[in-house]
Structures are given as structure tokens and as C-alpha cells.
């Protein structure tokens, strides 16, 4: 990757020992960590501010479904890393298989997420709070277990965080399909697999954010 390669040029100054695309992706992921810090930090701050009246996640959210969803995302992370391993050994068939599996797993995750959103909105949880007269309102707000403001805050923070994570996963799936198409055209044969590794880094990052999100929002 030395610039303007010409004979007997001394090696370019020793950088960080990582090729430029990977370094670029890691630097971009550092900024994404700050972005999710803002969102998750707000959730923690709002929750700490209204500690006792904060809804218990199990009452509103469907834990088993999202646990399965987490499992799907972890599997997609594994298939991604398998694809990278295949790419390094120049095993084109394996690369294509694992990439397709990763795209499918990612798409399932987003699908389950959309299903969960539809179910929650139907139940009455909105970004602005709990819709009055909705089954959720009947169960929680009217029975006094949950104040309207705390529900409002929970709705706002929940939809913003998981919404933006879903958005990042969707972008990942779209980019992954381009990578897969290129893989089917043999774009990553002959040791040129950097593209796979870079998209893999992004994908694992998105999985890592979900692991933290799943614990903080759904379990605690």
C-alpha cells in the first residue's frame, strides 16, 4: 500500500502497522462509539434522574424475542468472521456461502426489530410516551404502576437508541449485499480481501453495540 511505488524506495514511514482502510474503519468506529455514548449516556442519565418511577423493562418489552434476536446477531458475527477466514485462505466458495448467511442473519435481525416495533406501537408505546387508552396504558399507567412522564422518557430514549442501532444494522446489511455481489464476481480472490475484513469490523462493532444495548435497555 506504499504510495507511488517505484524501485528501491525505502519503506514508507512506519505508521501504526495497519493498512489504511482498516485504520480508517477503526477511526470511524471510534466516532461511532462517541455517537452511541451520547445516546446510551442520555438513557442512563434520564433513568438515574427518575430512578424509582422508571418502568421495569420486562413489563413492556418482550425479553425472549430480543434474546433470540441477540443470538441471531451473534450468529451473523460468527458467519462474518468465518467469511473473513475463508477470504484469507482464498476459499471463494466458503466466502460466498458465509457472506450470504451473514446478510440473511442481519436481515432477520432487522426484521425481528421491525416486528418488535410494530408490536410495541400497537401495544401503545410511542416515542412521545404511552398512548392513552392503549392496552399498555391500561396495564401500567392507569394502574398507577408507571407515571406518564417516566413512560414518555422511556419511550423517547428506547426508540431513539434502538432505532439508530437498527439504522446502522440496515446500512450494514446494504453494504454487505454489495460486498456479497462483488464476492460472487470474484472481487476478493487472489488475496485481495481487505474489503471483507473492513466490512467485518463494522459488522462486529454493530453487534458489540447491540450486546451493550440489549443488556442496558432490556435486562437492567
Amino acid at each position: 500500500m506504499a504510495p507511488a511505488v517505484q524501485p528501491a524506495a525505502p519503506p514508507a514511514e512506519e505508521g501504526i502497522g495497519v493498512y489504511t482502510q482498516k485504520l480508517g474503519m477503526w477511526v470511524f468506529l471510534a466516532s461511532e462509539v462517541m455517537f452511541f455514548t451520547a445516546l446510551i449516556g442520555t438513557y442512563i442519565i434520564l433513568r438515574w434522574g427518575s430512578a424509582e418511577s422508571w418502568p421495569v423493562p420486562q413489563d413492556i418489552l418482550n425479553i425472549p424475542l430480543t434474546a433470540f434476536n441477540t443470538f441471531v446477531l451473534i450468529c451473523s458475527s460468527v458467519s462474518m468472521v468465518k467469511a473473513y477466514a475463508a477470504a484469507t485462505h482464498d476459499d471463494q466458495k466458503g466466502l460466498r456461502l458465509w457472506l450470504v448467511l451473514t446478510v440473511l442473519a442481519g436481515a432477520t435481525f432487522v426484521g425481528v426489530q421491525v416486528l418488535e416495533y410494530r408490536h410495541l406501537i400497537h401495544e401503545g408505546l410511542l416515542p412521545s410516551g404511552i398512548r392513552d387508552g392503549s392496552p399498555l396504558a391500561a396495564r401500567l399507567v392507569d394502574s398507577g404502576k408507571l407515571t406518564a412522564t417516566a413512560a414518555g422518557l422511556f419511550g423517547s430514549a428506547f426508540f431513539t437508541m434502538t432505532g439508530f442501532h437498527g439504522f446502522h444494522v440496515t446500512c450494514g446489511v446494504i453494504c454487505m449485499t454489495f460486498v456479497t455481489i462483488k464476492a460472487f464476481r470474484g472481487g476478493y480472490s487472489g488475496g485481495r480481501f481487505h474489503g471483507v475484513e473492513v466490512i467485518g469490523l463494522y459488522w462486529h462493532f454493530v453487534d458489540l453495540v447491540w450486546i451493550i444495548l440489549f443488556t442496558i435497555v432490556y435486562l437492567i
Binding site: I16, V18, L23, S77
Partner: peptide, 19 residues
């Protein structure tokens, strides 16, 4: 995930600094 899937264990230490 970070150490094994993202290969931080096998990368130069300074990349972990960036992470």
C-alpha cells in the same frame, strides 16, 4: 467480540489505543 472477532488481539497495540 472485540478481541477475537475484530482481531484486536493480533493487531499492533496502538490500534487498541485507537479503539
Amino acid at each position: 467480540v472485540a478481541l477475537y472477532f475484530m482481531h484486536l488481539r493480533f493487531e499492533p497495540k496502538r490500534l487498541a489505543l485507537v479503539a
